Simulated assay, not measured.
Amino acid sequence: MALSSFTTPSGFLLPSIHSAPPFFTEQPNPRTQAQFTAQWTRLILTYARHRKLFMLRVEDAEVAGGDWDEILRNERINRRILPSHLSSLLDTMVASEQAAFEPPKQSRAAIIYWRTPEEWADALHAWAVATGQLNTILTFYEIADPPVPSPLSGIPIPLLRRAVTFLVKSNRAQIISVADGEGVRLFAAK
C-alpha cells in the first residue's frame, strides 16, 4: 500500500506517515522512534487545534468513536496506537512543555498546549480589550464558559490559571478572590 494523505470526516488532513503501519508501534531503533515521536507530537498538536480539543487521555487509545479516534486509529490499515505508546508520547510532550499532566502527579491525562500558556494569555488579554472587559472582575468560569462563544470557550481552568499567571507577571492582570472562587481583573497593557 502506497503512503498517502487522507482527509478525515472532520476535515483534518492526515499526513501520509499516518498510513504507515510502523507509525502506530514503538520502534526499537531510537533514531526512528525519535522521528516518529516528533511526527506524532506535531500530529496531536495540529489535530487538537483543528478540533479545539484540550485533554488527551491514555484511555483515548482504547475508545472507539472518541474525540481522538481519527488520529489514534487508522481503520484503512487496521492499526491503532496502543495505550502504552500514547503514554510514552504524553510523557515526551510534557517533558518538552507541549502538554501538562492534569491533574498533576499522574501521567494518564494531559492538557495539550496547541497554544502555549503565553499565547493563551495574549488571547485572553486581546479578548478582554475587544469586548470591553478591562478593569472588570471576571470569574474563571465566565471566561471559560462565556454566554457568547469566544476564542477562550472551553479552555480548562488549570490552563486559564497558567495564562493569567503570565498576565499577572506582566502587570496586565490581578487575581481576585470572589464569592464563588477566584476571578481576574485585566488591565490595559503598560
Rank of each mutant, 00 (worst) to 15 (best):
M1L: 07
M1G: 14
M1R: 01
S4Y: 11
S5N: 13
S5T: 15
F6Q: 15
T8E: 11
P9C: 09
L14C: 15
L14N: 04
P15W: 12
S16N: 13
S16E: 15
I17E: 15
H18V: 03
H18W: 09
A20L: 06
P22W: 06
P22D: 08
F24C: 09
N29K: 08
P30Q: 06
A34K: 11
T37C: 10
A38M: 00
A38P: 03
Q39M: 13
L43Q: 13
L43E: 10
L45A: 15
T46W: 02
Y47S: 10
Y47A: 00
H50E: 02
H50D: 09
R51Q: 15
L53R: 04
F54K: 10
R57W: 07
D60L: 03
D60A: 08
D60M: 05
D60V: 00
A61F: 08
A61V: 05
A61K: 11
E62H: 03
V63K: 14
V63I: 11
V63Q: 13
A64S: 04
A64T: 07
A64C: 00
G65M: 05
W68I: 01
D69K: 01
D69M: 01
E70R: 01
E70N: 04
I71Q: 11
I71H: 05
I71W: 01
L72K: 03
L72R: 01
R73M: 01
R73Q: 12
E75H: 11
E75I: 05
R76W: 14
I77W: 02
R79A: 12
R80A: 13
I81C: 04
P83K: 02
L86M: 01
L86G: 06
S88M: 09
L90I: 03
D91G: 11
T92F: 06
T92R: 02
T92A: 13
M93P: 03
V94N: 01
V94H: 01
S96F: 05
A100T: 10
F101V: 01
E102T: 07
E102P: 00
P103W: 10
K105Y: 12
Q106M: 09
A109E: 12
I112M: 12
I112F: 13
P117M: 07
E119F: 08
E119D: 14
W120V: 08
A121L: 07
L124I: 12
H125I: 10
A128H: 03
V129C: 10
V129G: 08
T131G: 09
G132N: 14
G132V: 09
N135Y: 08
T136Y: 11
L138H: 14
F140Y: 15
E142P: 02
L152R: 00
G154Y: 13
G154F: 04
I155C: 12
L159V: 03
L160R: 09
R162V: 00
R162C: 08
R162D: 11
A163P: 06
A163L: 02
V164S: 04
T165V: 07
K169M: 08
N171K: 12
R172M: 04
R172V: 00
R172G: 03
A173P: 07
A173T: 02
A173V: 05
S177T: 10
A179V: 06
A179F: 07
A179T: 14
D180S: 13
D180A: 05
G181K: 00
G181D: 03
E182H: 13
G183I: 00
V184S: 05
R185L: 02
L186F: 01
A188S: 13
A189L: 04
A189T: 12
